[in-house]
């Protein structure tokens, strides 16, 4: 099964005494865009942080690109080619656009089968995000929310990842930017990247995802293809209450 990039088995996580995730099992194939959907507080962000090793209290197995990463430190996980763009963006506001990109820089890497992963340079990223090209020396703190959102994705891509965890890219940005993000995701998919996306906006998820897992109260309640979800208003009503 070399086609599976990320395989999560029985993932659980706690914040202090509160259990947030209950035995999640799911996978993301190579070149696939998978959406984690669910209401606020369903556990989408926690899932991503737990995969990334950012939550101390976690249990379960996470395999990435064929290796077990469930006991690794966040930096070790990132160095294996798992990229993470957090929901709250977390741009280094004192650093310029170029400096932010430099922090994310990592050497080129290959998939388990030896194929080269897409390799990113600032020039290529500026082509992908023309807005950023206009402001290479602007400090991150003086960019708009939409520009920061793009910079977060670009910074992660500087690490030449094999798979990107994209946490709510449409949250809190204008419809026009949401549309640009959708186009970017489609571009990245064409490059051969896998993407695990967390999302509440069904219209956005429909534009970009192949498959969907629906989370509720830290458990997977439904899974299927995006087409199945689009064709089932019932399921949407039950779990997403659109």
């Amino acid at each position: 099964m070399t086609d599976i990039m990320l395989k999560v088995e029985s993932l659980s996580a706690w914040y202090g005494a509160a259990r947030i995730l209950y035995d999640l099992t799911f996978e993301v194939g190579r070149g696939e865009v998978v959406a984690l959907m669910g209401r606020n507080g369903a556990g989408k962000s926690t899932t991503m942080k737990a995969i990334m090793g950012l939550i101390a209290q976690r249990q379960g197995k996470v395999a990435f690109n064929g290796d077990d990463i469930s006991r690794l430190e966040p930096y070790q996980i990132a160095r294996r080619g798992l990229g993470f763009t957090p929901e709250d963006r977390r741009i280094f506001s004192d650093l310029t656009v170029m400096e932010n990109l430099d922090i994310g820089r990592q050497p080129p890497r290959r998939f388990a089968d030896g194929a080269a992963a897409p390799q990113w340079t600032p020039e290529r990223l500026f082509a992908l995000f023309p807005n950023l090209a206009e402001m290479p020396d602007r400090p991150g703190g003086r960019m708009s929310g939409g520009e920061q959102q793009m910079l977060t994705v670009a910074r992660t891509l500087m690490g030449n990842p094999l798979l990107v965890l994209l946490d709510e890219p449409s949250e809190g940005v204008a419809p026009l930017i949401v549309e640009q993000m959708a186009n970017t995701i489609i571009e990245l998919k064409k490059e051969g990247l896998s993407i695990l996306l967390s999302e509440q906006n069904i219209h956005f998820a429909q534009l970009v995802s192949d498959r969907v897992y629906v989370l509720e109260k830290g458990q997977i309640q439904w899974q299927g293809t995006m087409a199945q979800l689009s064709g089932s208003p019932d399921i949407q009503r039950t779990y997403l209450t659109v």
């Binding site: 990334m52 950012l54 430190e73 930096y75 957090p86 922090i103 994310g104």
Partner: peptide, 9 residues
């Protein structure tokens, strides 16, 4: 934390 998530030890 973010620096760590970007692959910096």
């Amino acid at each position: 934390e973010m620096v760590g998530a970007l692959g910096v030890n």
